[in-house]
Design a protein around this nucleic acid. Sequence first.
DNA 1: ATTGCGCCCTA
DNA 2: GTAGGGCGCAATG
Length: 916
Amino acid sequence: MAANHLYLVDGSGYIFRAYHRLPPLTNRHGVPAGAVYGFTTMMWKLVDELHRAEGPTHMAVIFDASSKTFRNDMYDQYKAHRPPPPEDLVPQFPLIRDATRAFSIPCIEEVGLEADDIIACYAKAALAAGWKVTIVSSDKDLMQLIEPGLDMLDTMNNRRLGPEHVIEKFGVPPEQLGDVLALMGDSVDNVPGVPGIGPKTASELVRTYGDVEAVLAAAEQIKKPKLRQSLIDHADNARLSRELVRLVCDRPLPEPLDDLALKGLPPEPLRAFLEDMGFRSLLAKLGGPQPAAAPAASIDEEVDPPFVHKDYETVVDEAALDRWIAAAYAATQIAVDTETDGIDCVRAKLVGISLATAPGKACYIPLGHGLAGDDLLAEPPTQLPAELVLAKLKPLLEDPSILKIGQNLKYDLIMFRRHGVDVTPYDDTMLLSYDLDAGLGGHGMDDLAKRHLDHACIEFKTVCGTGKTQISFDKVALPQATEYAAEDADVTLRLWRRLKPRLAREKATRVYELVDRPLVPVIAEMERAGILVDRAELARLSAEFGGEIQRLEGVIHEAAGGPFTIGSPKQLGEVLFERLGLKGGRKGKSGVYSTDVNEMERLAGEGVAVARLVLEWRQLSKLKATYTDALQAQINPETGRVHTSFGLATAQTGRLSSTDPNLQNIPIRTETGRRIRDAFVAAPGNVLLSADYSQIELRLAAHMADVPALQQAFARGDDIHNLTAQELFGEVNRDTRGRAKTINFAILYGISSWGLAGRLGVDRGEAQAMIDRYFERFPGINRYIADTLAELREHGYVTTLFGRKTHLPGIKAKTVGERQAAERQAINAPIQGTSADIIKRAMVRMGPALAAAGLGHVRMLLQVHDELVFEAPEADAPAAAEVIRETMARAAEPAVTLSVPLGVEVGIGKSWGAAH
DNA sequence: ATTGCGCCCTA
DNA sequence: GTAGGGCGCAATG
C-alpha cells in the first residue's frame, strides 16, 4: 500500500483566482456562481484522481475564518488596506463551503488563524506521520513550506511547484523564502518590508548573508548608501515583517488527520448540490437519473480546461500532420500562429507553425529548427520539410469554410503570403479586443491572456533569453519550442471564444467587419512594399549636419566658458542659469531647469545669442540622430527599401501608428527638415503620389456638431480659419487668422481656457471670453460637447460615426485633473477616430478601385493619418490620382452621409517632398 | 542592460 | 488642450 497523500486546498485563495479567471456566470437561481463552478470542477478532478499514484488519499479545504488574526495583535496595519471583495463574489463564499461539504470533504477554519497557518499545521503533522503532502494553491507565502515530500499544485496552470520553482522565482530555497518575503514586503497584505528593497535586492541580500537578522547585523558594511541607510532606519520593520510572514505550525489540529480520508466521488449529497446549482454537465458525469426540465442557466457554458504544456504535441511526421488537419476540418475553425527567426516579418524566416483546434488541444510543427550550439557532429532535429507542410496546410488555410484565428495576423499573413498561401477567411483576436475594449488596456497576447484567462503566457525571454545572450527561435530545442508556440495558438483560440460572441452584443461588428479586419491584408501589403529612400542623399545630409553640429558645439562651449554636454538638459540648465547667471530659470518637478523650446525662445528674444545656437544645435542633432542616421540603418538590404511596421491596435482612437522606423513623423515644417522628405523617392520610372484630406477633422467637427455656418463654409470652399477670424474678431488679417486657427484646433483637442491662454499668450479671462464667443457663434459645438460628455458618463466610452468605441475610465478618477483629461479626450476621440475610420475605409477600397481602373500595379506605401502615399509608373500617375481622389472623398459612404464634402489634394513628384 | 525623463518630430 | 514614436542622458539594476 502506497503512502498516504494529503491534499490541502487553499479555499480562500482559490476563490479569488477563480473569480477573476472565469466569466461572470450565474446559476439557475440567478446568483453569481462562476467561482463556485470553477471550484466544483477542480474538486471533482482532484477527487477523481484518487486512484492515481500522485492522487490524494486524504483531503481538506481550508478557509480563513475571520479577518482578525494573531498577526493583527503584532501589527494593527496588517492587511489593513485590503479592499472589500467584489459584490458578486461575496455570496459565493458560503456556496463554496457547501460545495466542499457536498463532496463529503471537511471544511476547516479556525478563529484567529489564517488559512495559511492551518495548512502549515496539517502539513507538518502529515509529514511527521510519513505522509506525502500537496498544497493546492499558488500563494507565495505557502511556498515556504515546500520540502521533500511536500509540493504545491497550481490548478490554474496545472503545474506542480517544487523547491526548484522557488529558487527560480526568488533565487533562494524555500527555507530562506520567509526572509526574502520579509525584506521585500507585500503591499497587498501591508507587510511593511524595507523601503527600496524589491524582490531582486531582497533575494541577493538573503543569498549573501543568510537571513534577515544576518542582513541587519551586516547593514553597516553594505556599500550602496541608500540601501544601507534604509536597512538601518527600518530594522524594526524588517524584524516585524519576518514574524508576519512566518507561518504558525504548532497548533493542535481541529480535526485529526485520519478523518480527512477520501472515499471517492460520493453520489449524495453531491447530486443534490449539483441539481440545486444547475450544474448539468457535472450532473451528467455523475450518472443516474437526470432532472427533467433543463433550467435556463448559463453556468454550463463549458469552462476552459487548465493549461497543460506537456500535453502539446510536436508534429514531426506526416500522419500526425494529417490528424491535425482533419481535426481542423472537424472543428471548422483553427487558431494559427507562426514562429520566425526575427521580428522583421519582411526578412525573417519561417521556423515553425502552431495550431489549436480546441482549448488545450494544440500542436507545434517545427520547420526550420537548427542546433542550439555549434556542435558540428550533432544532427538538427528531425522535422517535416517546410514545402510539404505548407502544401498540406494551403488548402486548409485557404478553405472558405474554415475560419482561421490569429493574434496580430498581419505578421502571419505576410509570412504565409511569402510562401504562396493566401489565408482566408480569418479573425484576429487583437483586433477583436481593440474594437471591443479600446482604452481598457493593451491588446497584445500577454495582456489579453492576463485580462481574460488569468493566465501568464510563457515569456519569450524565458525561451530565447535576452540581450546579447538572446537566441533566435530556430535555436530553441523542440520540447520548449512546442510549449511556447503551441501555447500561443491555444491562448489565441481561448481568447477568440471569449471575444467573438461579444462583438454583436456590444455593437462592435460594423467597425470590425467593415474597417479593421479587412484592413489587415492591406497593411500587410504596404509593409511588404516598403518605400525607397536615397541612401546617398541621407549620408550627404548626415555629413552636412554633423559638420554644422560640430561648429555649433565649438561656439556654444566658448560662449559657456567651457565644454559641457549640450544634449543634457540638466547640464545645459546649470550652464545657462548658474554659470552664466541668466534670469528666469524655472525648475520642473525633477529639480531640473526647463530648457525646452519656449524657454529658449524667451532667452533668445532677450538677446541671449547662445540660446538661439542651442536651438539650432538641437534641431540638427535631432534630424541627424532620428532621421538621416537612423533611416540609413533601417534600409532592408534585400529590397533596398524601408519597411515600417504599422500598429493596428495601438492608438486609443482608432488611428494607426508606425514604428521601426516611424514614418509618420518625417519632418516637413522646416526647410532643413523637408530635405529629409526629399530623400524618400520613387523607383526608377515611377513617381510618388501624395493624397491628403484637407482639414478633415474640422470638417467632421462641423458635421458631428451640426454647425451650419461651418458646413456652408466648407461647401463653398471658403478658408475656414478666415471665417472663424471674421466671426470672432470682426476682421481678417494675419494675426486674427492665426489666433482663429489656434482656437479651431483647441476645439478639436477638448478646449480649456487654461490651455488656450497658454497657447495664445493671453490671460485666462481673455481666453475664456474667446471660447464663449466661439460657442455663441457656432452653437452646435456647445451641444456636441455636452452630448459627448453625457455619453461618456453614462457608458464609460464615446463612439465615432462608425461605432468605434474609446473607453475612458479616467472619467471616474479621484482627481479633477484626471477627470478633466478624460473629458478632453472624450471630445477629441470621436472626431479623431471618425477621421481614422474614414481613411481606413478608403484604404480598404483602394486596391479594388485601382484594379477596376486597370491600375492594379499602383502600390499604396504609407498612411500618415490624413495622407496616403502611393508609387505608380509615371504614365499612370494622372489616372491614379483621380481614382485615389474619388475613393478618398467618398470613403464615408454609404455607411455615413456627411453634411460636408471631404476635400482631397493630390500631389505628384519624384520624391515625397516634391509630391507635397 | 533596462527604465524614466526631457525634449522634439508628425497629424 | 488631442493622438502617436524615438532619441540621448542619467540613474537604476
